[in-house]
Amino acid sequence: MRFLITFLFVLIFVSCTQGKQKLSGENEWQQKMNADFKDATKSPLKAKDLKVFKRLDFFSIDSIFAVEAILNRTPESEWFNMKTTTGTLRKERIYGILNFELKDRKFQLNVYQGEEVIQEEDYKDYLFLPFLDNTNGTSSYDGGRYIDLRIPQGNTIELDFNKSYNPYCAYNDKYSCPIVPRSNYLDIKIEAGTKNYIKH
């Protein structure tokens, strides 16, 4: 009898464990990305790709690519039309210029603010950082990648390339994605964040 109870307990435990699959990813950000891509209500993947999707491919997390940048605000910058992959235009402005060092080299990137996005309560402090680098077209998406940022209280901002991600049009051409301005090209390999996606 004791053996039977023990056997049933083990069987139930194994069944519950199999039902709860651990989310893949080196950290919470990667795990959330994978969870969102598996969720049919959030995923940008096409139906045929979602059926076989297991996880996104990321570079290994590297603290070298998490830096502190100096934010030089540009309050007088004008709104302009940023081009997208579908030909539509998005009203953006350069909120400021990020200056930082990476591998003993100095770089700068324009960080943008969207006219429509800041009208939403949850995104009124949202900043958009698109960039290109020397991994594009090989280990990362050829159209560049994005990083989401928030307006800091001071003049420094954490810039973590480990959280860079592909635009949705890398997965599905129905999406309209901002084209990265050439001025935001980094002449270095940013081997951090989301890798290129191999379509099925």
Score class of each variant (00 low, 15 high):
A170L: 03
L11Y: 07
L71E: 01
K103Y: 04
Y175R: 12
K48A: 09
L132I: 08
P181I: 04
S139Q: 13
I188M: 13
F59D: 00
I118L: 10
D62L: 01
M82T: 06
N81L: 09
N27L: 13
F161L: 04
R145C: 02
F58D: 00
K20G: 00
G143V: 00
T88H: 15
F37M: 07
Y197F: 15
M33H: 06
D104P: 00
D142H: 14
G25R: 01
E76P: 01
G25K: 10
T88K: 15
N155A: 12
I179A: 04
D62I: 03
V111T: 00
F131G: 01
E101C: 07
K195V: 04
M1N: 04
R182Q: 13
V67K: 01
Y168F: 15
D133H: 07
Y165A: 04
F107E: 05
F9D: 02
K199F: 13
I70P: 02
K32N: 10
K163F: 08
T84D: 08
Q18F: 09
K124H: 06
Y165E: 10
Y171F: 10
L45D: 02
L45E: 01
I198T: 13
G25N: 06
L56V: 06
Q153M: 10
D160P: 06
L71M: 13
I5R: 13
N72A: 15
C169G: 07
E68R: 05
E115C: 03
G25I: 06
T85C: 14
F53I: 07
E121L: 03
N196D: 13
Q30E: 12
P44Y: 13
Y95F: 13
W29T: 11
E121C: 02
R73H: 00
W79M: 03
G193I: 01
L56P: 04
E92D: 12
G19W: 08
M1S: 09
E116A: 10
Q21H: 01
R145Q: 00
I198R: 14
K54F: 04
K163S: 08
Y165M: 11
N155R: 14
V180H: 07
Q119F: 11
L102R: 05
C169Y: 02
R90V: 12
Y123A: 06
Y175H: 06
F131N: 05
K199E: 12
L89V: 04
G144P: 03
E76M: 07
T86P: 03
E191W: 10
E101Q: 11
S43K: 10
F80T: 07
L98C: 04
Q21L: 11
T88D: 15
R150F: 07
D160E: 12
G143P: 00
P130D: 12
T74L: 13
P152G: 13
S77D: 00
R150N: 10
N81Q: 15
